[in-house]
Each structure stands twice: as structure tokens, then as C-alpha cells.
Design a protein around this nucleic acid. Structure first.
Ligand SMILES: [Zn+2]
Ligand SMILES: [Zn+2]
Ligand SMILES: [Zn+2]
Ligand SMILES: [Zn+2]
Lengths: 340, 340
DNA sequence: GCGCCCTTATCGCAATCGGT
DNA sequence: ACCGATTGCGATAAGGGCGC
């Protein structure tokens, strides 16, 4: 009668494979009977009972972690606000804030050390098994990667898997409604974003980094208020960064050393970004109401000598629309060779 | 026993819906039994039998037409070669050539009047049901549009139909092999291409029209020898042109008046181009070996002040690859608002 | 919430067809 | 008989929806 007997009694819930197939699960052995018939091995016939429990219990701490990350984001923002130096010793104010939730963010798993953000985007409707609770988007994403039904796809898909599109319900040709939040939900978690963004701007010097950084901070503040075009640009930047081979020695930058194993990020983010790229590239073309960002951004290199007089003239003649600037920026990024 | 009795004999092939579902088709009535069971109406249960036959029978004359068009292409090329005027009265040589296959290309259906080209691209392996014969790609495309299995899709699809991709076997994420010919097979027939190209360059003045015209002629000469990136650019140009609303009065251009009803072209080309756009936009991102075109092209407007010194410098530092120029060109086109 | 019955949809592939 | 194209069986997957 005790519910925790580890004996030969059947496990509390069906195996994952059977749940996905919606078929009866014998719930014995590690390859259950249905899975055995299906030719699946022990690695495919898994149960999530204890995982679910632990996840349920630990999701509180996950939220806690993300809230802590949010704090650090605000610190960073404030620091940027008071002092334009990237990371100056703006001791006072920062330390004050830091006292709010000092926490133990140090150690070998330096996941969080890389400037978190976006960790405050989450929604409320995620309720694992009955409870309603705040669920940051980053957590959603991470759990998807970690133990979601598409886990295998993420980790060992090196070739193009076209069917992943609908597998993950990514609207490749969105009709303009709900697209922003969809794209947000696709975004990798904040620490990945920040890492990849840094990688990009350390490697390429086409976009005006300071301008983008400002926009990025604005995005961290209020992720739902950026334009779709800017999101698309962000996706492109991340995609480029994810493909850039990691240099062995870290840059001679005074910022925090990038101790995150790039390989790990790459594995996790790669497929998501591939989808996002396709989306970002297709969406504006399908629906011209995308890419509505207004303010232009300075470019360097071939695109830097931007002449506004002719641009304005042409804009009024109907040749350009206001999206030109942003698509151009995205394009400048795309043009990098992606080593694969 | 006669095979041509129109009586209660079964139609030669199953209905399209059944073929797609791979289920037995009763081949009676317009909603066949399977389709009736599925709740599909007559508009979904279609047959292509007689269309296929007619296409098979008429393909000879189609080839003939396309060969004639090829002649005119060569005439046009030669005229351009001898005289850089767009259409000057280069009487002698042209008339000599024109005598080769004078033909009756005049009349109300001025399909062919608009500078044909690409009509010589075809392949030999197209054997509708046994015969091996020369099959120009344009013919393939036209017959697809006119009476192919996807005919309805082409004519009444105003919204996005995502499933068309695999319906037409367009490799949205091609792996780089066979892509060029695939894109060529997607291209609208020559007269459509020329018309749309003209529309584009009459309306927009971003790309250097003379340079592009030269490349276009090169493309007409040897369509298989252009780079994928250039093809993508062409697709984008055509896509823009197809969406541009047709002005009521034709331009004050001394070239042949554009008497082709734009609406017709639009209907036929629209979906193909939508697919091609998606392809052209996705492919280079999926496979960095795309967009390999070398020679840069002058731009006007915002992109005109191209600085080669910095470009070269950056190229060598690995920041740009040689595809930059072309993607930029494509992007400049994309940035137009597409009125839809 | 979850398990899973039972109706559809999918599609590999072997039988079949039809032209030569 | 050969051979590429086509058909459609039948094994399998997907998933709507109901009872708990
Ligand atoms: Zn099972
Ligand atoms: Zn199992
Ligand atoms: Zn049928
Ligand atoms: Zn039918």
C-alpha cells in the first residue's frame, strides 16, 4: 500500500514514448512492452516520475535563480546607465543593489555569470501539474531542451531536420499576430543570448556595437516592446555567433572571462536558432508589416557611408519603406560566412 | 473492349487526393468515394488524366514554340551586342536572323513578344510516359501551371499555403547539390522573366540596371553557368515586380509596349515565386557555399557609396566573404514594401 | 491533470500497369 | 520480357476525446 516501494510494482505513470503515442503502456521493465514491440530500447523508454517531481520541486529554485539573474541584469543596466564604461568599478550603487540578493553565483558551473537578461519574460500559464506559477521563458526553453519530448532532436541533430519546424510549432510564415511572443519564446535563455551577443561583437565590427548594446539593454528591460525587426536582427546575430568557431584563448578583454563551454551552448541553441533564422528571414518577406523599426543605426565598413538625403528622397517616392535600415542591418550580418 | 469508350469505365488514374493519401480511389464521380467519405467536395477531388495526355500531345508544338523563342533570344542578344541602345533599329543583322524563323509572333496573345529567354534550358530526361524528348524547362513550368496537379493551388491561392513547399518538391533547405537546376526549374518561363525584370527596373533604381542587364544576358546565354546567388537575386527581383501594382498607362519607353496582362502573369507566377523567395532566402543561410558570385555591382541610393578599400581589408580579415556584395543586392531589393 | 480506446492520417513497398 | 511509373495494401503513427 505504501506508494514508495521500489519493488516490482508498476511505475506510477506511463513511459514517455507511450504517452506520446497515447497508447497503453505496460509500465514494466525499462523497455516496456509497447516500446519493445516498437523496437525502442531502454534509452527511449523513460519515465519521468521522479524527474517530474524533482523538477516540480526544483522549479521553485529555478525561478529563484532567474529572479536572481534579473537582479543582476538590473544592476548591469544601472551600471551602464550611470557610467558608459562597459564594466567600470562603479562601486557604490552597484554594491548596494548587489546586497539585495547576493547569492552564490560563483563556482565551476558558471552558467549564470555571463550577464543574464530576458529571464524576466516568462508567463504565468505554465502549470506543470495543477499549480499555477510564474514560469520564465528561459526556464521553459531550458526544460524543453533538457527533458522535453524533442530532447533528442536538439542534441544529436547535425543535419537539417525539416520536420522540426512543425515539431516545435514554429510559425515559419506567421500572419503577424502573436509573432513577437512566439519569437521571444524561441529565444535562448538570457545567459546564452548575452554570451553569443558578446561573441558576435567581439568578432565582427559591422554593426555599431554601442548602439546595439543600448537597444539590447532596452530589450532586457522590456522584451515585449522591441520591434519584430530588431528581434530578427538579434536572431541573426546569435546565429552567426553560434557558428563562429571558438578561439582557444579568450580575448584580451577586461570583461568577465567567457568560461562557458561554447560547445554546450552550441548544442543546445543550434536548432532553435536555425528555426528562428528561417522565421526571421521568411516572415518579413511574407508580411511586409514586419520590420517596422524606425531609428537608423550607424554602420561601419561598407555600409557606413549612409546617405540620408537620397534615402529620404527615395523613401518618399515609395521606393524604400522604413524597414530598409533594419533589413540592411540584418543582411550585413547574414553576409558573414558561417563556418559549419 | 475498345479502350476509348467514355462509358462507365474507370478513369486512367486516381484522383489527386487519393494519390496523395495513397489510398484506393474509386475513380468515379467527381467526389470519388474515398473523397466523399473524407468529406471532400468536387473541388478537391480532381483528375489530371486528360490534361496529362493533352500536354503530352501538345508538347511537340510547345517545344517548337520555345525553339522559336530561342531564336528571338539570340536576335536580341546579338542586337545588344552590336549596339548598346536598348532597342535601336539595328536593321540588317537582325532582319537576317529574323528570317531564320519568322513565324507568326504577333496578334492579340502577345505572350511571346516580350523578349524570351531561358527557353533553351530544358533537359532531356523528361519522359512523360515512355518517350525521351527534349523538354524545355519553361515548358515544364508552364504545363505545371496550366494543367499540372497543382493548378488550383496556383490560381486561387491568395493566402500562404505552407504545404505547397513539399507539394512542389521545392527543397527549402537544399544541401547544395542539384540546387541550381532546381532553381532553374522553378523559374517562370522566359517571357515572364523578361517582363517582370523590365517592370522592376522601370520602377526601382537601386540596382545598376546596365550591369544587371549584362548579367541577365549572360544568363540567357548559359543559364546553368550563373551563380546561385545571382539566381536568388533574380528571384527576388521577379518577386518584387510581381507584387508591384501595374500602372494604368505604360511608360514612355520606346521599347515594345507591355501589352501582356499583368494580372495573368501575376496569377501564374505568384506562388512559384513565393516558394522561390523562401528558398533563396533560406538556402544561403543554410549552406554558406551559396552566394559565391564574384564581381561586385554598383549600387545607387543608400548602398551606392561602396568603399572597396575597407571592403577588401575586411574581406581578408575574414569578416566578409565574397558573398557580401550579392546578399546586399538581394537585400536592397527585399527592402521594398510589397503591396499585397 | 493522466491513461489510453479508437478513428484517421501516413507512407514503405510490393503488386500492377502500360508502352516498347 | 523489360522497365519506369503508378496504385493501393497494410503496418504504423497521430491524436481527439472520454472516463477517472
Ligand atoms: Zn510504455
Ligand atoms: Zn516504453
Ligand atoms: Zn479518389
Ligand atoms: Zn477523390
Amino acid at each position: 500500500m505504501a506508494s514508495s516501494g521500489p519493488k516490482g510494482k508498476r511505475l506510477p505513470i506511463s513511459c514517455l514514448a507511450c504517452r506520446k503515442r497515447k497508447i497503453k503502456c505496460s509500465r514494466d521493465g525499462r523497455p516496456c512492452q509497447a516500446c519493445t514491440r516498437r523496437g525502442l530500447g531502454a534509452e527511449d523508454c523513460t519515465y519521468i516520475s521522479e524527474l517530474r517531481l524533482s523538477a516540480e520541486r526544483s522549479s521553485n529554485s529555478v525561478v529563484e535563480t532567474e529572479l536572481r539573474a534579473r537582479i543582476r541584469t538590473l544592476e548591469e543596466l544601472l551600471r551602464k546607465q550611470m557610467n558608459l564604461q562597459p564594466v567600470g568599478p562603479t562601486a557604490d550603487t552597484v554594491s548596494t543593489l548587489r546586497g539585495t540578493s547576493a547569492g552564490d553565483f560563483s563556482g565551476p558551473e558558471t552558467w549564470d555569470i555571463l550577464g543574464p537578461m530576458l529571464d524576466n519574460v516568462g508567463t504565468l500559464h505554465m502549470s506543470p501539474s495543477g499549480h499555477i506559477r510564474y514560469m520564465p521563458l528561459a526556464s521553459q526553453w531550458k526544460s524543453l531542451v533538457a527533458n522535453g519530448p524533442a530532447a533528442e532532436y536538439f542534441l544529436n541533430s547535425d543535419s537539417d531536420t525539416a520536420e522540426d519546424d512543425d515539431y516545435l510549432q514554429i510559425p515559419l510564415a506567421g500572419n503577424g499576430s502573436g509573432t513577437r511572443s512566439e519569437m521571444l519564446s524561441i529565444l535562448p535563455p538570457g545567459w546564452h543570448c548575452a554570451t553569443l551577443k558578446d561573441v558576435y561583437f567581439k568578432s565582427f565590427h559591422i554593426l555599431h556595437d554601442l548602439t546595439f548594446e543600448a537597444e539590447y539593454q532596452r530589450f532586457c528591460h522590456d522584451p515585449h516592446n522591441v520591434s519584430i525587426s530588431w528581434l530578427a536582427l538579434l536572431f541573426v546575430i546569435l546565429a552567426i555567433a553560434i557558428y563562429k568557431p571558438q578561439p582557444q584563448s579568450h580575448q584580451d578583454d577586461t570583461r568577465k572571462p567567457m568560461s562557458i563551454p561554447m560547445k554546450v551552448i552550441r548544442d543546445q541553441v543550434c536548432l532553435k536558432l536555425r528555426l528562428a533564422r528561417a522565421f526571421a528571414l521568411t516572415a518579413p518577406f511574407t508580411n511586409p508589416s514586419f520590420f517596422p523599426l524606425k531609428q537608423p543605426v550607424n554602420h561601419e565598413g561598407t555600409l557606413s557611408t549612409h546617405r540620408h538625403s537620397s534615402s529620404d528622397e527615395q523613401r518618399h517616392s515609395g521606393i524604400y519603406d522604413e524597414s530598409f535600415e533594419n533589413v540592411t542591418r540584418a543582411l550585413a550580418c547574414i553576409s558573414h560566412r558561417l563556418p559549419s
